[in-house]
Simulated assay, not measured.
Amino acid sequence: MATIDTAVEQLMAGEVIAYPTEAVYGLGCDPDNEEAVLKLLAIKQRPVAKGLILIAANYSQLLPYIHDNAIPIERRFQIFSSWPGHVSWVLPASAKAPRWITGNFNSIAVRVSAHPIVQQLCQAYGKPIVSTSANLAGEAAINDYQQLLASIGLQVAAVVDGPLGGATQPSQIRDAMTGEIIRS
């Protein structure tokens, strides 16, 4: 079991960590470190083409990765009023957003999490982290700490223990341009 400080040290060292989110345990790493992202994708057995979600403590942490001016004015209230919370939004990606995060898309999925551990991680790290469920691609998400340790625990550098946020399913994903629900 790792502290927030230990988890941040591992993020800085280019490692993959596991941590609780609103509904399931997640895997995370530094979104700007291609080697760390590829390590995370290998653990999860997920192709880079699918893209990944970034989670943050606040919207300003996401600004380097998104094309803020391209977000329609009429969608901003809906997006910002859902945060911090359990809704991820697919926003236009900035030119600086790494392809190993956006995958085959010109957009990027992001969320400002309300989970206290995620908030602490992102505040202590000073930027967003990658967030994907801590299960192999195609398998059920993990919402039990012992199951996390048994299936993923040895493949990550740090596991932050703590309660899940009480949601019953992974975050809803919505398209910021249309408001359409991509994953409910």
Rank of each mutant, 00 (worst) to 15 (best):
residue 59 Y to Q: 06
residue 58 N to T: 12
residue 82 S to P: 12
residue 33 N to H: 10
residue 66 I to A: 00
residue 36 A to T: 03
residue 59 Y to P: 02
residue 33 N to W: 08
residue 27 L to Y: 03
residue 73 I to C: 09
residue 80 F to M: 05
residue 80 F to K: 08
residue 46 R to H: 14
residue 31 P to A: 00
residue 84 P to R: 10
residue 59 Y to C: 02
residue 80 F to N: 02
residue 76 R to L: 11
residue 44 K to H: 08
residue 50 K to P: 04
residue 51 G to F: 06
residue 33 N to Y: 03
residue 35 E to T: 07
residue 57 A to V: 04
residue 41 L to S: 01
residue 77 F to R: 11
residue 50 K to F: 07
residue 68 D to P: 14
residue 70 A to S: 06
residue 66 I to F: 03
residue 45 Q to Y: 13
residue 53 I to M: 15
residue 27 L to T: 12
residue 81 S to K: 05
residue 49 A to Q: 10
residue 48 V to P: 13
residue 73 I to K: 15
residue 51 G to P: 13
residue 81 S to N: 07
residue 60 S to Y: 03
residue 32 D to T: 12
residue 56 A to W: 15
residue 73 I to D: 11
residue 41 L to K: 04
residue 30 D to C: 10
residue 64 P to H: 04
residue 39 K to C: 10
residue 46 R to D: 09
residue 41 L to V: 05
residue 33 N to I: 01
residue 55 I to C: 14
residue 52 L to A: 06
residue 30 D to R: 03
residue 56 A to E: 08
residue 70 A to N: 04
residue 30 D to Q: 06
residue 72 P to G: 00
residue 52 L to Q: 04
residue 55 I to P: 15
residue 78 Q to H: 10
residue 46 R to T: 01
residue 28 G to M: 09
residue 41 L to Q: 08
residue 29 C to F: 08
residue 38 L to Y: 14
residue 41 L to W: 13
residue 28 G to I: 01
residue 54 L to M: 05
residue 79 I to N: 13
residue 82 S to Q: 13
residue 71 I to W: 06
residue 28 G to N: 08
residue 31 P to R: 01
residue 76 R to H: 03
residue 81 S to L: 09
residue 68 D to L: 14
residue 59 Y to L: 02
residue 79 I to V: 05
residue 76 R to E: 04
residue 35 E to S: 05
residue 44 K to M: 02
residue 31 P to Y: 01
residue 70 A to V: 00
residue 47 P to Y: 13
residue 66 I to V: 02
residue 67 H to V: 01
residue 41 L to P: 15
residue 74 E to G: 07
residue 70 A to W: 11
residue 44 K to Y: 12
residue 27 L to W: 08
residue 84 P to I: 05
residue 77 F to N: 11
residue 70 A to K: 03
residue 58 N to S: 12
residue 62 L to K: 07
residue 27 L to P: 15
residue 28 G to S: 10
residue 50 K to C: 01
residue 80 F to P: 11
residue 42 A to W: 08
residue 27 L to I: 03
residue 56 A to C: 13
residue 36 A to M: 09
residue 83 W to I: 05
residue 40 L to T: 05
residue 54 L to H: 11
residue 38 L to A: 09
residue 74 E to W: 08
residue 32 D to H: 09
residue 41 L to R: 00
residue 58 N to P: 06
residue 35 E to I: 09
residue 35 E to H: 04
residue 49 A to D: 04
residue 32 D to S: 15
residue 65 Y to C: 00
residue 56 A to Q: 11
residue 35 E to L: 12
residue 60 S to I: 05
residue 27 L to E: 09
residue 78 Q to A: 14
residue 67 H to T: 00
residue 60 S to L: 02
residue 28 G to Y: 11
residue 54 L to D: 07
residue 29 C to T: 06
residue 60 S to T: 10
residue 69 N to R: 14
residue 52 L to D: 00
residue 50 K to N: 07
residue 52 L to S: 07
residue 46 R to I: 00
residue 82 S to R: 14
residue 78 Q to R: 02
residue 43 I to H: 15
residue 61 Q to W: 12
residue 49 A to L: 03
residue 50 K to G: 06
residue 67 H to L: 03
residue 73 I to Q: 15
residue 58 N to C: 13
residue 57 A to I: 01
residue 71 I to K: 05
residue 79 I to R: 13
residue 71 I to A: 13
residue 72 P to F: 08
residue 47 P to A: 01
residue 45 Q to G: 08
residue 67 H to K: 00
